[in-house]
Simulated assay, not measured.
Amino acid sequence: MTRPAKRTTIADVARTAGVSGATVSFVLNDTPGQSIPEETRQRVLEAVRQLGYRPRGSARALASGRSDVVLLSIPHLSIGPGITRFVEQFATSLAHAGLTLVTHLAGAPGRSLPDVCAAIDASVVASLDPLDDETAQALRGAGADIVFTTELAAHSIMRRTGRRQAEHLIALGHRRLGYALPQHALLRKIADERLHGAADACAQAGLEPPLALETKLDTAATARAARRWRREAVTAVCAYNDEIAIALLAGMRQARLTAPGDLAVIGADDIPLAQVADPPLSTIAFDLEKVGRSLADAVVASLSGREPQPAPASLEPHVIQRAST
């Protein structure tokens, strides 16, 4: 069995460069008030490159009083393309500021969020779900200097998504709506909130609640649902997300139904495939990349002692109309 390579230490760098460990530390941390000759500085940096030395995060945190780790708590749900885009942009923007993102599934089996925060020595914790006062206090006790919550997974934005779907269809003249729900248990929390939002829009327009049917990513199943909606005089369907909506369009073709002639269909999340569906899919979109950049800017501002800017208005869901409606 091959033994793991021994981690390079400051002592190794100091020995290679022919200087003290303190001198190496002064050079790497660019310590103010230390007059290190340029030739010595370059010798230390060359030893660092030669040995592949990487400072330990805990050592940097001890020197600076704060780690560079940001912990993001994501609800224990099926992670869709929208949240993925947000996380990618958030991580990239933090990296540009020298910060590292670690994600944690809230509610999944294993350690609690405060325990994870303490284990990785996170300076900042951001959560996509609201945090109760007890959890926020525990996070600060675990070492987090800053605790953020965002609106991405909040009930209000989920309801606004369903409301915008239904409002769009009602504005087009539809008076009997359906709602395509997923079977996956991890998706039902979000799906039910979106359905409630659509029902709110129907109630405000004096219409019956949407006829909600559970379906899956299966052409035969969505064909059966489409036939049922037509028998019940439904003329337009809100789908939980774009994947369900695209599956519904395929089922409609099998059932010899057209969109929007027989059933208008609108999805949510604006995945790349939505615009090349047959027909191109109307959907609800968010500028999640902008939200990721905005949250990263708020983290950096807070760490620098500045007042973070409020969340961007682009978080408001908006309709992208295509041929399916």
Rank of each mutant, 00 (worst) to 15 (best):
A268L: 09
V299R: 01
I271R: 15
G82F: 05
P279W: 15
P32K: 02
R49E: 05
L77F: 15
S35F: 14
A95M: 02
A5K: 02
A11G: 11
R231D: 12
A17I: 00
E88K: 13
L263D: 06
L51M: 05
I266S: 00
V125C: 02
H168L: 08
A153Q: 03
P182L: 05
G110Y: 05
S112N: 14
D115H: 10
S324E: 07
R7M: 08
A247G: 02
L139I: 05
D242R: 03
A205G: 06
T100G: 10
E214A: 14
G292L: 00
R41P: 12
R188P: 03
V125L: 01
H318E: 15
P308I: 09
A142Y: 06
L128V: 07
S112I: 10
A59E: 02
K216N: 14
M158I: 10
T100M: 10
R230T: 07
L152G: 07
V125S: 02
Q275W: 06
R293E: 15
V116G: 06
T135G: 08
A154V: 10
A5V: 11
A298Q: 14
S302R: 11
A180T: 08
A180I: 12
S73F: 00
R49S: 04
A22C: 14
V319L: 12
F86E: 11
C238P: 00
A22Q: 10
F286S: 07
T84K: 15
G162F: 07
V116H: 09
V237A: 06
N29K: 12
R322M: 14
H196N: 13
I36K: 05
P317N: 11
A118M: 03
R43S: 03
P210H: 12
P37K: 10
R164M: 12
T16P: 08
V44H: 00
G52C: 01
V319A: 12
L28Y: 10
Q165C: 04
R227E: 02
L186I: 13
E307D: 09
C202W: 11
I79A: 00
G21I: 03
D129S: 13
G251W: 01
A301R: 15
T219S: 08
S156E: 15
A5P: 04
T92L: 07
A47H: 00
G33C: 13
R176A: 11
T149W: 02
K290T: 15
V48S: 05
A14W: 01
V19A: 00
L249F: 05
C202E: 12
H184Q: 09
S294K: 10
L211D: 06
R7A: 08
V69C: 03
P279H: 14
V44T: 00
N29G: 06
R322H: 13
Q254N: 05
Q165F: 02
A61S: 06
T16N: 06
T258G: 10
K6N: 07
V124M: 01
P209W: 06
H96N: 14
G173V: 07
R60Q: 01
A5T: 06
R175E: 09
N29P: 09
L295C: 15
A233C: 15
A221Y: 02
D270H: 06
D115I: 13
R160T: 14
A191R: 01
S324R: 05
P280F: 05
S324H: 04
R175I: 13
L217G: 03
Q254V: 10
E316P: 11
P114Q: 13
P280D: 04
P317L: 08
Q137N: 07
P280K: 09
A47S: 01
S20N: 08
T40H: 04
T235P: 03
K189V: 15
